[in-house]
Design a protein around this nucleic acid. Structure first.
Lengths: 250, 250
DNA sequence: TCACGTCGTGCCATATTATGGAACGCCATG
DNA sequence: CATGGCGTTCCATAATATGGCACGACGTGA
Protein backbone atom coordinates (compact mmCIF):
# COMPACT_ATOMS: atom_id res chain seq x y z
CA UNK A 1 0.00 0.00 0.00
CA UNK A 2 2.14 2.80 -1.28
CA UNK A 3 -0.34 5.49 -0.45
CA UNK A 4 -0.50 4.52 3.21
CA UNK A 5 3.27 4.43 3.55
CA UNK A 6 3.48 7.83 1.93
CA UNK A 7 0.79 9.18 4.20
CA UNK A 8 2.56 7.97 7.32
CA UNK A 9 5.76 9.60 6.13
CA UNK A 10 3.88 12.84 5.79
CA UNK A 11 2.38 12.44 9.24
CA UNK A 12 5.79 11.86 10.75
CA UNK A 13 7.18 14.85 8.93
CA UNK A 14 4.41 17.00 10.37
CA UNK A 15 5.22 15.72 13.84
CA UNK A 16 8.86 16.56 13.37
CA UNK A 17 8.43 20.05 11.98
CA UNK A 18 5.10 21.22 13.33
CA UNK A 19 3.59 23.64 12.80
CA UNK A 20 4.34 23.22 9.11
CA UNK A 21 2.80 24.39 5.84
CA UNK A 22 1.76 22.40 2.79
CA UNK A 23 4.49 23.81 0.60
CA UNK A 24 7.24 23.21 3.11
CA UNK A 25 6.23 19.58 3.48
CA UNK A 26 6.05 19.11 -0.26
CA UNK A 27 9.56 20.47 -0.69
CA UNK A 28 10.98 18.50 2.18
CA UNK A 29 9.53 15.22 0.94
CA UNK A 30 9.85 15.96 -2.77
CA UNK A 31 6.18 15.36 -3.39
CA UNK A 32 3.63 17.33 -5.40
CA UNK A 33 1.81 19.95 -3.37
CA UNK A 34 -1.56 18.59 -4.31
CA UNK A 35 -0.71 15.13 -3.08
CA UNK A 36 0.50 16.42 0.26
CA UNK A 37 -2.53 18.57 0.71
CA UNK A 38 -4.92 15.74 0.01
CA UNK A 39 -3.21 13.64 2.64
CA UNK A 40 -3.28 16.48 5.18
CA UNK A 41 -6.98 17.03 4.62
CA UNK A 42 -7.66 13.34 5.04
CA UNK A 43 -5.75 13.17 8.31
CA UNK A 44 -7.66 16.23 9.38
CA UNK A 45 -10.93 14.55 8.53
CA UNK A 46 -9.90 11.61 10.68
CA UNK A 47 -8.98 13.92 13.54
CA UNK A 48 -5.28 13.14 13.44
CA UNK A 49 -4.05 16.52 12.25
CA UNK A 50 -5.34 19.99 12.90
CA UNK A 51 -4.66 23.51 11.76
CA UNK A 52 -2.84 25.74 14.15
CA UNK A 53 -5.04 28.12 16.10
CA UNK A 54 -5.27 31.38 14.27
CA UNK A 55 -3.34 30.14 11.24
CA UNK A 56 -5.26 27.92 8.91
CA UNK A 57 -2.20 27.17 6.78
CA UNK A 58 0.01 25.52 9.36
CA UNK A 59 -0.54 21.95 10.42
CA UNK A 60 0.21 20.11 13.60
CA UNK A 61 -0.51 16.77 15.23
CA UNK A 62 -3.83 16.57 17.05
CA UNK A 63 -4.43 14.99 20.43
CA UNK A 64 -6.38 12.04 19.07
CA UNK A 65 -3.17 10.15 18.57
CA UNK A 66 -2.71 10.04 22.35
CA UNK A 67 -5.41 7.39 22.49
CA UNK A 68 -3.25 5.13 20.31
CA UNK A 69 -0.50 3.68 22.45
CA UNK A 70 1.54 0.55 22.82
CA UNK A 71 0.03 -1.91 25.30
CA UNK A 72 2.80 -1.37 27.87
CA UNK A 73 1.49 2.13 28.40
CA UNK A 74 -2.18 1.31 28.74
CA UNK A 75 -3.49 2.88 31.86
CA UNK A 76 -0.18 4.70 32.09
CA UNK A 77 0.96 2.25 34.72
CA UNK A 78 4.57 2.24 33.65
CA UNK A 79 4.75 6.03 33.42
CA UNK A 80 3.02 6.45 36.74
CA UNK A 81 5.04 3.82 38.56
CA UNK A 82 8.33 5.11 37.18
CA UNK A 83 7.74 8.74 38.02
CA UNK A 84 8.84 8.84 41.65
CA UNK A 85 11.75 6.39 41.46
CA UNK A 86 13.11 8.27 38.44
CA UNK A 87 13.03 11.56 40.29
CA UNK A 88 14.74 10.09 43.29
CA UNK A 89 17.41 8.47 41.18
CA UNK A 90 17.96 11.75 39.38
CA UNK A 91 18.29 13.60 42.68
CA UNK A 92 20.60 10.97 44.15
CA UNK A 93 22.99 11.08 41.19
CA UNK A 94 22.38 14.54 39.79
CA UNK A 95 22.34 12.95 36.34
CA UNK A 96 19.61 12.59 33.73
CA UNK A 97 17.51 9.42 34.02
CA UNK A 98 15.91 7.76 30.97
CA UNK A 99 12.91 5.43 30.78
CA UNK A 100 12.63 3.23 27.69
CA UNK A 101 10.43 0.43 26.42
CA UNK A 102 11.13 -2.17 23.75
CA UNK A 103 9.44 -1.78 20.38
CA UNK A 104 8.98 -5.46 19.70
CA UNK A 105 12.43 -6.81 18.95
CA UNK A 106 13.31 -3.87 16.73
CA UNK A 107 14.56 -1.17 19.05
CA UNK A 108 14.14 0.52 22.41
CA UNK A 109 12.24 3.79 22.52
CA UNK A 110 12.73 6.61 25.01
CA UNK A 111 9.41 7.42 26.62
CA UNK A 112 10.29 9.57 29.61
CA UNK A 113 13.11 11.50 31.11
CA UNK A 114 14.04 13.11 34.41
CA UNK A 115 16.49 15.88 33.56
CA UNK A 116 19.35 16.76 35.84
CA UNK A 117 20.37 20.28 36.72
CA UNK A 118 23.92 20.25 35.42
CA UNK A 119 25.13 22.70 32.83
CA UNK A 120 26.49 19.89 30.72
CA UNK A 121 23.95 17.12 30.31
CA UNK A 122 22.91 14.47 27.86
CA UNK A 123 19.85 15.02 25.73
CA UNK A 124 17.69 12.67 23.69
CA UNK A 125 14.22 13.56 22.45
CA UNK A 126 11.27 11.53 23.68
CA UNK A 127 10.23 8.96 21.12
CA UNK A 128 13.79 8.37 19.99
CA UNK A 129 14.46 4.80 18.87
CA UNK A 130 17.82 3.18 19.61
CA UNK A 131 19.28 -0.28 18.99
CA UNK A 132 19.22 -2.99 21.63
CA UNK A 133 22.85 -3.99 21.35
CA UNK A 134 24.43 -0.55 21.71
CA UNK A 135 22.57 1.09 24.59
CA UNK A 136 22.35 0.57 28.33
CA UNK A 137 18.57 0.46 28.20
CA UNK A 138 18.59 -1.90 25.23
CA UNK A 139 21.08 -4.35 26.68
CA UNK A 140 19.36 -4.30 30.08
CA UNK A 141 16.14 -5.46 28.44
CA UNK A 142 17.84 -7.85 26.05
CA UNK A 143 19.60 -9.64 28.90
CA UNK A 144 16.27 -10.93 30.18
CA UNK A 145 14.76 -12.02 26.88
CA UNK A 146 14.57 -15.67 25.88
CA UNK A 147 17.47 -17.25 23.98
CA UNK A 148 15.36 -17.35 20.89
CA UNK A 149 14.53 -13.67 21.10
CA UNK A 150 18.20 -12.83 21.66
CA UNK A 151 19.12 -14.89 18.61
CA UNK A 152 16.47 -13.03 16.68
CA UNK A 153 17.87 -9.62 17.56
CA UNK A 154 21.42 -10.71 16.78
CA UNK A 155 20.27 -12.12 13.45
CA UNK A 156 19.07 -8.67 12.47
CA UNK A 157 22.65 -7.46 12.62
CA UNK A 158 24.85 -5.62 15.09
CA UNK A 159 25.93 -2.42 13.35
CA UNK A 160 28.72 -0.34 14.88
CA UNK A 161 28.03 3.23 15.98
CA UNK A 162 31.33 3.98 17.70
CA UNK A 163 34.60 2.17 18.29
CA UNK A 164 33.11 0.73 21.46
CA UNK A 165 29.96 -0.80 19.99
CA UNK A 166 29.76 -4.52 20.59
CA UNK A 167 29.43 -6.06 17.14
CA UNK A 168 30.51 -9.68 17.71
CA UNK A 169 27.65 -12.01 18.70
CA UNK A 170 29.75 -14.03 21.15
CA UNK A 171 31.03 -10.87 22.81
CA UNK A 172 27.47 -9.58 23.13
CA UNK A 173 26.28 -12.84 24.69
CA UNK A 174 29.11 -12.60 27.21
CA UNK A 175 28.07 -9.07 28.06
CA UNK A 176 24.44 -10.10 28.51
CA UNK A 177 25.54 -12.88 30.87
CA UNK A 178 27.52 -10.32 32.85
CA UNK A 179 24.45 -8.06 33.02
CA UNK A 180 22.33 -10.92 34.33
CA UNK A 181 24.93 -11.54 37.00
CA UNK A 182 25.49 -7.99 38.25
CA UNK A 183 21.97 -6.73 37.55
CA UNK A 184 22.85 -3.59 35.65
CA UNK A 185 24.04 -2.85 32.13
CA UNK A 186 26.78 -0.51 31.07
CA UNK A 187 27.18 1.72 28.05
CA UNK A 188 30.63 3.25 27.66
CA UNK A 189 30.11 5.36 24.53
CA UNK A 190 28.85 2.28 22.71
CA UNK A 191 26.22 4.25 20.85
CA UNK A 192 26.86 7.99 20.99
CA UNK A 193 30.41 9.24 21.47
CA UNK A 194 31.21 10.54 24.93
CA UNK A 195 27.94 9.37 26.47
CA UNK A 196 27.87 6.72 29.17
CA UNK A 197 24.96 5.08 30.90
CA UNK A 198 24.12 2.57 33.61
CA UNK A 199 20.83 0.71 33.09
CA UNK A 200 18.55 -1.90 34.63
CA UNK A 201 15.46 -3.71 33.36
CA UNK A 202 11.92 -3.32 34.63
CA UNK A 203 10.02 -6.59 34.82
CA UNK A 204 6.31 -7.33 34.87
CA UNK A 205 4.59 -9.77 37.23
CA UNK A 206 5.45 -12.62 34.84
CA UNK A 207 9.11 -11.67 35.06
CA UNK A 208 9.26 -10.46 31.46
CA UNK A 209 11.19 -7.26 30.71
CA UNK A 210 8.76 -4.46 29.82
CA UNK A 211 11.12 -1.51 29.99
CA UNK A 212 14.30 -0.17 31.46
CA UNK A 213 15.80 2.70 33.34
CA UNK A 214 19.23 4.22 32.93
CA UNK A 215 21.42 6.96 34.32
CA UNK A 216 22.73 8.84 31.31
CA UNK A 217 25.81 11.04 31.71
CA UNK A 218 28.61 12.69 29.77
CA UNK A 219 31.73 10.54 29.74
CA UNK A 220 33.55 13.36 31.51
CA UNK A 221 31.55 12.70 34.64
CA UNK A 222 31.72 8.92 34.53
CA UNK A 223 33.50 7.75 37.69
CA UNK A 224 34.46 4.05 37.91
CA UNK A 225 34.66 4.36 41.69
CA UNK A 226 30.96 5.07 41.87
CA UNK A 227 29.87 2.44 39.35
CA UNK A 228 28.98 -0.23 41.83
CA UNK A 229 26.94 2.14 44.00
CA UNK A 230 25.06 3.72 41.11
CA UNK A 231 24.51 0.32 39.57
CA UNK A 232 22.82 -0.85 42.73
CA UNK A 233 20.70 2.29 42.86
CA UNK A 234 19.47 1.81 39.30
CA UNK A 235 18.68 -1.82 40.00
CA UNK A 236 16.80 -0.87 43.14
CA UNK A 237 14.79 1.83 41.34
CA UNK A 238 13.92 -0.59 38.54
CA UNK A 239 12.90 -3.20 41.08
CA UNK A 240 10.53 -0.79 42.80
CA UNK A 241 8.88 0.00 39.48
CA UNK A 242 8.74 -3.70 38.60
CA UNK A 243 6.74 -4.44 41.72
CA UNK A 244 3.99 -2.19 40.42
CA UNK A 245 3.73 -3.81 37.00
CA UNK A 246 0.77 -6.10 36.30
CA UNK A 247 1.02 -9.49 34.62
CA UNK A 248 0.82 -9.53 30.85
CA UNK A 249 -2.76 -10.39 29.81
CA UNK A 250 -2.78 -13.06 27.15
CA UNK B 1 -8.61 9.24 0.42
CA UNK B 2 -10.82 6.38 1.43
CA UNK B 3 -7.99 3.94 1.89
CA UNK B 4 -6.22 6.17 4.39
CA UNK B 5 -9.36 6.72 6.44
CA UNK B 6 -9.99 3.01 6.49
CA UNK B 7 -6.40 2.32 7.50
CA UNK B 8 -6.59 4.75 10.40
CA UNK B 9 -9.80 3.09 11.58
CA UNK B 10 -8.01 -0.22 11.57
CA UNK B 11 -5.08 1.27 13.48
CA UNK B 12 -7.40 2.68 16.10
CA UNK B 13 -9.18 -0.65 16.38
CA UNK B 14 -5.87 -2.36 16.99
CA UNK B 15 -5.05 0.15 19.70
CA UNK B 16 -8.37 -0.46 21.36
CA UNK B 17 -8.31 -4.23 21.30
CA UNK B 18 -4.64 -5.12 21.23
CA UNK B 19 -3.35 -7.71 20.95
CA UNK B 20 -5.79 -8.61 18.18
CA UNK B 21 -5.87 -11.02 15.26
CA UNK B 22 -6.61 -10.37 11.60
CA UNK B 23 -9.90 -12.21 11.64
CA UNK B 24 -11.18 -10.51 14.76
CA UNK B 25 -10.47 -7.10 13.28
CA UNK B 26 -12.13 -8.04 10.01
CA UNK B 27 -15.27 -9.13 11.82
CA UNK B 28 -15.35 -6.15 14.10
CA UNK B 29 -15.00 -3.68 11.24
CA UNK B 30 -16.98 -5.68 8.70
CA UNK B 31 -14.12 -5.68 6.23
CA UNK B 32 -12.64 -8.46 4.09
CA UNK B 33 -9.84 -10.31 5.79
CA UNK B 34 -7.47 -9.72 2.91
CA UNK B 35 -7.98 -5.98 3.08
CA UNK B 36 -7.32 -5.87 6.81
CA UNK B 37 -4.24 -7.99 6.50
CA UNK B 38 -2.78 -5.82 3.77
CA UNK B 39 -3.22 -2.77 5.96
CA UNK B 40 -1.68 -4.48 8.98
CA UNK B 41 1.34 -5.53 6.96
CA UNK B 42 1.77 -2.03 5.64
CA UNK B 43 1.64 -0.49 9.11
CA UNK B 44 4.12 -3.12 10.16
CA UNK B 45 6.40 -2.18 7.30
CA UNK B 46 6.24 1.42 8.45
CA UNK B 47 7.03 0.40 12.02
CA UNK B 48 3.67 1.44 13.45
CA UNK B 49 2.37 -2.02 14.29
CA UNK B 50 4.17 -5.11 15.46
CA UNK B 51 3.39 -8.72 16.16
CA UNK B 52 3.15 -9.74 19.76
CA UNK B 53 6.21 -11.45 21.16
CA UNK B 54 5.86 -15.17 20.75
CA UNK B 55 2.62 -14.94 18.78
CA UNK B 56 2.99 -13.91 15.19
CA UNK B 57 -0.75 -13.70 14.65
CA UNK B 58 -1.65 -11.03 17.18
CA UNK B 59 -1.02 -7.39 16.47
CA UNK B 60 -0.34 -4.45 18.71
CA UNK B 61 0.73 -0.83 18.46
CA UNK B 62 4.47 -0.29 18.25
CA UNK B 63 6.47 2.32 20.09
CA UNK B 64 7.22 4.39 17.01
CA UNK B 65 3.98 6.26 17.45
CA UNK B 66 5.38 7.77 20.64
CA UNK B 67 7.53 10.04 18.50
CA UNK B 68 4.39 11.54 16.96
CA UNK B 69 2.89 13.94 19.46
CA UNK B 70 0.96 17.17 19.61
CA UNK B 71 3.24 20.21 19.97
CA UNK B 72 2.13 20.92 23.52
CA UNK B 73 3.89 17.75 24.58
CA UNK B 74 7.16 18.35 22.78
CA UNK B 75 9.99 17.78 25.15
CA UNK B 76 7.40 16.54 27.61
CA UNK B 77 7.48 19.89 29.36
CA UNK B 78 3.82 19.89 30.25
CA UNK B 79 3.90 16.32 31.55
CA UNK B 80 7.07 16.97 33.49
CA UNK B 81 5.95 20.28 34.95
CA UNK B 82 2.55 18.93 35.94
CA UNK B 83 3.83 15.83 37.65
CA UNK B 84 4.65 17.18 41.10
CA UNK B 85 1.78 19.67 41.46
CA UNK B 86 -0.67 16.96 40.42
CA UNK B 87 0.60 14.59 43.06
CA UNK B 88 0.43 17.24 45.73
CA UNK B 89 -3.08 18.23 44.75
CA UNK B 90 -4.13 14.61 44.79
CA UNK B 91 -2.64 14.14 48.26
CA UNK B 92 -4.18 17.34 49.57
CA UNK B 93 -7.68 16.42 48.43
CA UNK B 94 -7.50 12.63 48.30
CA UNK B 95 -9.30 12.83 44.95
CA UNK B 96 -8.23 11.94 41.43
CA UNK B 97 -6.55 14.75 39.46
CA UNK B 98 -6.80 15.00 35.66
CA UNK B 99 -4.50 16.76 33.20
CA UNK B 100 -5.98 17.63 29.81
CA UNK B 101 -4.94 19.51 26.70
CA UNK B 102 -7.11 21.01 23.97
CA UNK B 103 -7.25 19.25 20.60
CA UNK B 104 -7.51 22.35 18.50
CA UNK B 105 -10.99 23.68 19.06
CA UNK B 106 -12.57 20.24 18.81
CA UNK B 107 -12.28 18.73 22.25
CA UNK B 108 -10.12 18.35 25.33
CA UNK B 109 -8.11 15.18 25.71
CA UNK B 110 -7.06 13.54 28.96
CA UNK B 111 -3.31 13.02 28.94
CA UNK B 112 -2.42 12.24 32.53
CA UNK B 113 -3.96 11.29 35.80
CA UNK B 114 -3.01 11.11 39.47
CA UNK B 115 -5.29 8.50 40.99
CA UNK B 116 -6.58 8.83 44.53
CA UNK B 117 -6.71 5.98 47.01
CA UNK B 118 -10.43 5.93 47.69
CA UNK B 119 -12.51 2.82 47.10
CA UNK B 120 -14.98 4.81 45.07
CA UNK B 121 -13.25 6.97 42.49
CA UNK B 122 -13.80 8.39 39.04
CA UNK B 123 -12.11 6.77 36.10
CA UNK B 124 -11.43 7.97 32.56
CA UNK B 125 -8.94 6.32 30.21
CA UNK B 126 -5.97 8.34 29.01
CA UNK B 127 -6.56 9.66 25.51
CA UNK B 128 -10.26 10.17 26.14
CA UNK B 129 -11.71 13.12 24.27
CA UNK B 130 -14.43 15.26 25.88
CA UNK B 131 -16.33 18.39 24.81
CA UNK B 132 -15.24 21.86 25.88
CA UNK B 133 -18.62 23.06 27.04
CA UNK B 134 -19.50 20.19 29.37
CA UNK B 135 -16.33 19.52 31.36
CA UNK B 136 -14.36 21.33 34.03
CA UNK B 137 -11.15 21.00 32.05
CA UNK B 138 -12.84 22.11 28.84
CA UNK B 139 -14.53 25.17 30.29
CA UNK B 140 -11.38 26.18 32.18
CA UNK B 141 -9.47 26.31 28.88
CA UNK B 142 -12.35 27.82 26.94
CA UNK B 143 -12.65 30.71 29.38
CA UNK B 144 -9.25 32.02 28.30
CA UNK B 145 -9.65 31.65 24.55
CA UNK B 146 -10.33 34.65 22.32
CA UNK B 147 -13.92 35.72 21.67
CA UNK B 148 -13.62 34.47 18.14
CA UNK B 149 -12.45 31.05 19.26
CA UNK B 150 -15.26 30.85 21.79
CA UNK B 151 -17.75 31.73 19.07
CA UNK B 152 -16.22 29.04 16.94
CA UNK B 153 -16.67 26.34 19.56
CA UNK B 154 -20.24 27.45 20.25
CA UNK B 155 -21.00 27.41 16.54
CA UNK B 156 -20.11 23.73 16.45
CA UNK B 157 -23.05 23.05 18.74
CA UNK B 158 -23.58 22.48 22.46
CA UNK B 159 -25.04 19.00 22.77
CA UNK B 160 -26.55 17.94 26.10
CA UNK B 161 -25.07 14.97 27.95
CA UNK B 162 -27.01 15.24 31.20
CA UNK B 163 -29.76 17.47 32.57
CA UNK B 164 -27.06 19.81 33.84
CA UNK B 165 -25.17 20.34 30.58
CA UNK B 166 -25.06 24.00 29.60
CA UNK B 167 -26.57 24.12 26.14
CA UNK B 168 -27.59 27.78 25.75
CA UNK B 169 -24.83 29.99 24.31
CA UNK B 170 -25.66 32.98 26.53
CA UNK B 171 -25.68 30.80 29.61
CA UNK B 172 -22.29 29.35 28.63
CA UNK B 173 -20.82 32.81 28.10
CA UNK B 174 -22.01 33.81 31.56
CA UNK B 175 -20.37 30.76 33.03
CA UNK B 176 -17.10 31.50 31.23
CA UNK B 177 -17.15 35.03 32.62
CA UNK B 178 -17.67 33.61 36.10
CA UNK B 179 -14.73 31.26 35.58
CA UNK B 180 -12.51 34.16 34.53
CA UNK B 181 -13.51 35.97 37.69
CA UNK B 182 -13.08 33.23 40.26
CA UNK B 183 -10.23 31.45 38.46
CA UNK B 184 -11.62 27.92 38.54
CA UNK B 185 -14.30 26.07 36.60
CA UNK B 186 -16.99 23.80 37.95
CA UNK B 187 -18.60 20.68 36.55
CA UNK B 188 -21.64 19.49 38.49
CA UNK B 189 -22.52 16.33 36.54
CA UNK B 190 -22.59 18.38 33.34
CA UNK B 191 -21.02 15.60 31.32
CA UNK B 192 -21.15 12.27 33.13
CA UNK B 193 -23.89 11.69 35.67
CA UNK B 194 -22.78 11.82 39.30
CA UNK B 195 -19.30 13.10 38.50
CA UNK B 196 -18.19 16.55 39.64
CA UNK B 197 -14.96 18.39 38.99
CA UNK B 198 -13.15 21.62 39.80
CA UNK B 199 -10.73 22.82 37.13
CA UNK B 200 -8.23 25.55 36.27
CA UNK B 201 -6.33 26.42 33.10
CA UNK B 202 -2.59 26.14 32.55
CA UNK B 203 -1.17 29.06 30.56
CA UNK B 204 2.01 29.36 28.53
CA UNK B 205 4.40 32.30 28.66
CA UNK B 206 2.23 34.14 26.12
CA UNK B 207 -0.75 33.72 28.41
CA UNK B 208 -2.51 31.31 26.11
CA UNK B 209 -4.25 28.28 27.63
CA UNK B 210 -2.30 25.11 26.78
CA UNK B 211 -3.98 22.68 29.15
CA UNK B 212 -5.91 22.33 32.34
CA UNK B 213 -6.03 20.52 35.63
CA UNK B 214 -9.07 19.33 37.53
CA UNK B 215 -10.04 17.53 40.69
CA UNK B 216 -12.48 14.83 39.64
CA UNK B 217 -14.74 13.27 42.24
CA UNK B 218 -17.97 11.32 42.70
CA UNK B 219 -20.90 13.64 43.37
CA UNK B 220 -21.38 11.89 46.72
CA UNK B 221 -18.17 13.40 47.98
CA UNK B 222 -18.69 16.88 46.58
CA UNK B 223 -18.83 19.31 49.49
CA UNK B 224 -19.89 22.93 48.78
CA UNK B 225 -18.22 24.05 51.99
CA UNK B 226 -14.83 23.05 50.59
CA UNK B 227 -15.37 24.44 47.10
CA UNK B 228 -13.64 27.74 47.64
CA UNK B 229 -10.60 26.15 49.25
CA UNK B 230 -10.20 23.40 46.65
CA UNK B 231 -10.79 25.92 43.89
CA UNK B 232 -7.90 27.99 45.14
CA UNK B 233 -5.71 24.91 45.38
CA UNK B 234 -6.41 23.91 41.79
CA UNK B 235 -5.73 27.45 40.63
CA UNK B 236 -2.47 27.52 42.55
CA UNK B 237 -1.35 24.15 41.16
CA UNK B 238 -2.20 25.27 37.62
CA UNK B 239 -0.32 28.52 38.18
CA UNK B 240 2.81 26.67 39.29
CA UNK B 241 2.70 24.55 36.14
CA UNK B 242 2.05 27.62 34.01
CA UNK B 243 5.24 29.25 35.24
CA UNK B 244 7.21 26.39 33.71
CA UNK B 245 5.61 26.61 30.28
CA UNK B 246 7.62 28.14 27.44
CA UNK B 247 6.27 30.68 24.97
CA UNK B 248 4.59 29.32 21.87
CA UNK B 249 7.07 29.39 18.99
CA UNK B 250 5.47 30.90 15.92
C1' DT C 1 -7.63 -41.78 11.91
C1' DC C 2 -10.20 -38.82 9.27
C1' DA C 3 -13.34 -35.11 8.37
C1' DC C 4 -14.42 -30.69 9.54
C1' DG C 5 -14.16 -25.86 10.81
C1' DT C 6 -11.23 -22.02 11.60
C1' DC C 7 -7.55 -19.14 10.81
C1' DG C 8 -3.74 -16.71 8.48
C1' DT C 9 -1.90 -16.12 3.99
C1' DG C 10 -1.20 -15.33 -1.16
C1' DC C 11 -3.10 -14.45 -5.74
C1' DC C 12 -5.08 -11.71 -9.48
C1' DA C 13 -8.61 -9.58 -12.69
C1' DT C 14 -11.24 -5.67 -12.00
C1' DA C 15 -12.85 -1.27 -10.87
C1' DT C 16 -11.95 2.09 -7.81
C1' DT C 17 -8.89 5.53 -6.34
C1' DA C 18 -4.81 8.14 -5.88
C1' DT C 19 -1.98 10.89 -8.78
C1' DG C 20 0.23 15.33 -10.14
C1' DG C 21 0.44 18.82 -13.72
C1' DA C 22 -1.87 22.94 -14.66
C1' DA C 23 -4.50 26.88 -13.58
C1' DC C 24 -6.73 30.02 -10.31
C1' DG C 25 -7.09 33.50 -6.69
C1' DC C 26 -4.87 35.65 -2.93
C1' DC C 27 -1.41 38.28 -0.64
C1' DA C 28 2.92 40.56 0.28
C1' DT C 29 6.73 42.62 -1.80
C1' DG C 30 9.55 45.53 -4.83
C1' DC D 1 1.36 47.92 -11.10
C1' DA D 2 4.11 43.74 -11.85
C1' DT D 3 6.02 39.79 -9.66
C1' DG D 4 6.74 35.71 -7.05
C1' DG D 5 5.19 32.58 -3.72
C1' DC D 6 1.53 30.62 -1.51
C1' DG D 7 -2.68 27.47 -0.69
C1' DT D 8 -6.33 25.56 -3.20
C1' DT D 9 -9.08 23.14 -6.90
C1' DC D 10 -9.86 20.42 -10.95
C1' DC D 11 -9.64 16.32 -13.87
C1' DA D 12 -7.91 12.86 -17.37
C1' DT D 13 -5.06 9.19 -16.68
C1' DA D 14 -2.44 5.70 -14.75
C1' DA D 15 -1.62 3.42 -10.80
C1' DT D 16 -3.29 0.96 -7.05
C1' DA D 17 -6.42 -0.82 -3.60
C1' DT D 18 -9.97 -4.16 -3.67
C1' DG D 19 -12.03 -8.61 -2.15
C1' DG D 20 -13.54 -13.09 -3.67
C1' DC D 21 -11.32 -17.30 -3.84
C1' DA D 22 -8.20 -21.00 -2.86
C1' DC D 23 -4.45 -23.04 -0.29
C1' DG D 24 -2.07 -24.93 3.74
C1' DA D 25 -1.70 -25.29 8.74
C1' DC D 26 -3.73 -26.22 12.93
C1' DG D 27 -6.92 -27.94 16.41
C1' DT D 28 -11.15 -30.46 17.42
C1' DG D 29 -14.47 -33.96 17.75
C1' DA D 30 -16.58 -37.95 15.70
Amino acid sequence: MKSLLKSLEILEAVAEHQPVSVGELAKRLSLPKSTVQRVLLTFHEAGWLRQRRGDMTRWEVGARILGVRPPELNGGRLYAAAREPMRELRDATNETVHLSIPDGLNSVVLIDRADCQQNVRTFSPLGDAAPFHATANGMAIMAWLSDQEIDDIIARGLPAFTEQTITRPDRLREELAAIRQRGYSLNMSNYRPAICAIGAAIMDADNRPVGSLCISMPQSRYDPARLSQWGQQVVEAARRISLMQPADPI
